[in-house]
Write a protein that binds this DNA or RNA. Structure first.
Lengths: 190, 190
DNA sequence: TATTGTTATACTCTATAACTATA
DNA sequence: TATAGTTATAGAGTATAACAATA
């Protein structure tokens, strides 16, 4: 049993260990269109997803913003004035982690905690003008990145890709255990 | 400047911070520019890649094998008898990390270090029978997972997906800096 | 002097749980 | 008694550098 959410703000599950072809390490460079006869969708998805995240982190770096900080600014922007608890809950950030994130962004003047006279335990989060400004810039960076990523795709291909991805993604949201693809079944025949 | 490789055995770049639609947290999206169903390829790739990795870790867990350990076993299997240094180099595992990984797998009797009389600094890595056995089982689990992931796709759709993914992936292997999509450009117009 | 493998150290990240102040 | 936010603590993971043995 997993304890709780293992969603966005939690530790990454780590990389995929390589393609399924038995001996890909010899010979030529790991070029994307290498001569492998079998290419795993799982491997490809995992490594491209990894690369997409890494690159996004890189292009966001000049704004001195981590992806998760971007996400938090977005979360505040989308629910301005809500409590730290509520916003953290939506992003599945544990309370104790929220403190550090908000501290850092508040210290940079990007958002602020406001006291609520009606419930003096809570802190309402608001973006500052600087925060809104930076969030706008981060958005435009993210949009440029998105355009760049899909620059070689026609509009129809882009839709096709998203459709196929969602169909694969739908397989993943099924609960584990009802699948044949667990190592338990491999253990069974030992 | 990055120090060196940030490939498979290094810390994950972390999750994508959410889709690009400005206000996705409320009930229905009152998004002004991207009316409704704008879905970012970057977001989708990142989150599905994440989910694929996480699930793979889960289905491998009954074998008491982490994805990276699976990768290392594969690496040894593909280059049996080569030095720890050489195999680690191919998988881009820093030397000091190799020690711990090999220690753990050797302690479980899955691989062994053999001394090389011709160069007594080096350790040649070999799989044991148990290691080969476990690797086989891990492979069959990975193949079942792959089949499950793509169960809703026809053979042609599968090829199409891989093709589209590789075309997006090709955008990522370009060096950063030559892109328009860096936050530097957003900084420029402040 | 360079290289292979090892060990040691320091640092980051984060999960957990105590703690406070309110309610 | 329960909740919002904070602080403290401990543990995992890992990058870096020092190190020993060998070339």
């Amino acid at each position: 049993m997993k304890t709780a959410s293992d969603a966005e703000f939690h530790r990454s599950p780590g990389p995929w260990p390589g393609d399924l072809a038995p001996a890909p390490l010899e010979g030529t460079a790991p070029s994307p269109e290498s001569s492998g006869p079998f290419r795993s969708v799982g491997f490809t998805l995992s490594s491209i997803g990894h690369a997409v995240s890494r690159r996004f982190r890189e292009i966001l770096a000049p704004l001195e913003l981590e992806p998760r900080e971007f996400a938090l600014l977005r979360g505040v922007s989308a629910a301005e004035g809500q409590t730290q608890h509520a916003i953290g809950g939506r992003l599945q950030i544990p309370p104790s982690r929220m403190v550090a994130f908000v501290d850092a962004l508040e210290a940079r003047g990007l958002l602020e905690r406001r006291l609520n006279p009606e419930d003096r335990r809570t802190r309402a989060l608001h973006l500052t003008d600087a925060g809104r400004d930076l969030l706008d810039r981060a958005f435009s960076v993210a949009l440029a990145y998105e355009r760049d990523l899909t620059a070689d795709l026609g509009a129809d291909e882009r839709e096709q890709l998203l459709d196929l991805l969602h169909r694969v993604g739908a397989r993943l949201s099924l609960r584990p255990g009802v699948h044949a693809a667990t190592a338990d079944s491999a253990l069974a025949d030992e």
